[in-house]
Structures are given as C-alpha cells and as structure tokens.
Computed example of a mutant assay.
Amino acid sequence: MATDGFPTLKPAFTVLIEIDPGLPVGTLSSGPNLIWVKITSGTLVSHESYPTKVNATLLSGADWIHGDPSGEIQRLDVRSIFKTDDGALLNFSYLGLINMDPEIATVFAGTAKPGLVTQWGAVTHKFIQTGTEKYKKLEDEIYVAVGRFLVEEGKVTVEYKISAVVP
C-alpha cells in the first residue's frame, strides 16, 4: 500500500503532568457534562533528536473536560504555562479526546489501583506559543500526541508522547 502524500511524524517532546481528581461542574445548558481538572505539576522535555531543545516545568494549568452524552468520549481542553530552564514562558495548550475504556474509566471515577498504566487512549493536537525568539519556531509546527495515565499511590500522572507533523 503506497503512502505517498501522507504526512509523517517526527518525535518532538515527552510531557508528564500530575493531575488532581476532577471537580464535576455538572451538565451544562449546552448539553455536555463538564469536569474541571487542576494540573499540579509537570515537565515538557524535547526528544533527543528534536532540533529545538526544551526543558520546562509547569507553572500553572487546568483541563476543562466535556463528556459526550454517551460517556464513551471525553473531550479535552487544556491550557497551561511552562517555564523553560532558561526562563522563557511557553503557552502550552491542546484539544483532544479520550476514548473511554474500563481502565480509563477507573481513573475518572477515582477508583484506579496503584500500578495501573492505561493504554494510549488520548489523542490530541498541541499548540505552543511564546514571546521568546529562541523558541519561536515552536509556533510554526503542528503537533499531535497520544497520552496515557500512570497511577501511583495518591498520584495520577498523564504521559504524552508528542510528534511534529512533517509533510
């Protein structure tokens, strides 16, 4: 099967973010359920082969999760700020979705057992913006990612593997 014309992916970053349990806002007048999730800590680190080197830590972030009425899909809307080790601020946001399966449902319900590592059930597209010239090239890339949950005693981490889309 030929793949001519299809884009390829270049590994770009790994993100690890720790999250608090979600706060259910409830069913909105527009229909979906809304859950607000605080992101408590995190890192954004370039893949070794990615040309723009980034080593950043989370300053602030949250996720506004809209649940489809079926409960099978959760739609992500994340907004966060990372600070690089050289002091630059990166606006890091993404939209995406989580395909709910029984393991991921335990994470959302707060009943996941320590040691659980879910399948890569989240798919997102990322946006990076900055006013720092050194990192401006990051604004000119299209990024996609897959994510999974890592559950430890008293802690839930989301891991994303992010790739740049290459024509």
Rank of each mutant, 00 (worst) to 15 (best):
A2V: 06
T3W: 03
P7F: 08
L9V: 09
K10Y: 13
P11H: 09
T14A: 06
V15K: 01
V15A: 03
D20S: 14
P21R: 13
P21C: 12
G22M: 04
T27A: 10
S30N: 05
G31M: 04
P32H: 07
I39H: 03
I39W: 04
G42T: 07
E48I: 07
S49V: 08
T52M: 04
N55A: 13
S60D: 10
S60V: 12
G61E: 06
G61H: 04
A62K: 13
G67E: 10
D68N: 09
D68K: 07
P69Q: 14
S70Y: 05
G71T: 08
E72H: 11
I73P: 05
Q74K: 15
L76P: 02
V78C: 03
R79Q: 07
A88G: 05
A88D: 05
L90F: 03
N91P: 00
I98P: 03
M100P: 08
D101S: 14
E103C: 02
E103Q: 15
T106C: 09
V107F: 03
K113M: 12
K113C: 06
P114C: 06
V117E: 10
T118A: 03
Q119A: 15
W120G: 10
H125C: 10
K126M: 11
F127A: 08
F127S: 13
T130M: 01
E133F: 02
K134S: 02
Y135Q: 01
V144G: 07
F149M: 08
F149S: 10
E152G: 14
G154L: 05
K155H: 09
V156S: 13
V156E: 11
A164M: 05
V165E: 05
